[in-house]
Amino acid sequence: MDGDVLLQAIASGLLIGMVYALISVGLTLIFGLMEIVNFAHGEFLMLAMYAAFFGRSLVGLDPMLSLPATVGLLFLLGVLTYRGIISRILHAPMLAQIFATFGLGLFLRGLAQFFWSPDFRSVEAPFLAGLSGGGVEVGSVSLGVPQSAAALLAGLAFLALYLFIDRSRTGLALQAVAEDRATATLMGINSDRMFALGWGLGAACVGLAGAVLATFYYIYPSVGVVFALIAYITVALGGFGSVPGALVAGLLVGLVEVVSPTLFGFSPAYKYAVVFGFYLAVVLVRPQGLFGRF
């Protein structure tokens, strides 16, 4: 085993792992708050990627410049989804809740294909591509600038999320609602607004992920499906509802996926099998996931 190759694999695994973590954290946030799995999560990601694409192709904005707008738009989409759909099915049977978001996802995917065609798009990102020619060499390891920027932004987002949830009054109110909705309401917390905020935050996180992912991944209507499955496994591995869990699990999934074929010398074709096997091994020992509470 060549040490340089292993180092490269670890670096690549950590970079993509940060993106997986960022995609997953929105999902886990919403689940932790109200125990609803957002099956349209992948489609939120897809819409964010298209937002970056159209920002570039229609307005000429670099994806890094349109990023705040993309995050804002997705926040809005999250709030609207809550107000328009989720709040109406809060007390509906679980299956209704599942199929509401699942249906929303299929609907959004169909809409995207109808209006924007199934064609593959990619976004020019002149700012990131221009930084040291789009790649950095650290010793023997080559890192793509867009991938590194994505990982860095994901790290910052996690930090901000942690500070917000753990240190701000609103964040504490969110936690209170997640803990016990009825008691929180008695304490004067408007749980409805907290839910809306949770959906907004969750969607904003996946919006950020989509905006940075668009700089190095192609965009098409079903792109969300590729990442949604990884997001579900990440959330389950990290523990439903756990923000630090999403971070650790995202990094683990990225590492296992990229490093295990290199380390153990098997065909990369089995990398997803290894990821899922790893997940199974973890849930056998800790059914609630690494950081799950129950």
Partner: peptide, 20 residues
């Protein structure tokens, strides 16, 4: 030869194997 999953989210490990 390197076999990959269709519709992969990343192909880093695969390309590294080719590089080798």
């Amino acid at each position: 030869e390197v076999r990959h999953a269709t519709g992969a989210s990343s192909l880093t490990a695969e390309v590294q194997a080719l590089q080798q």
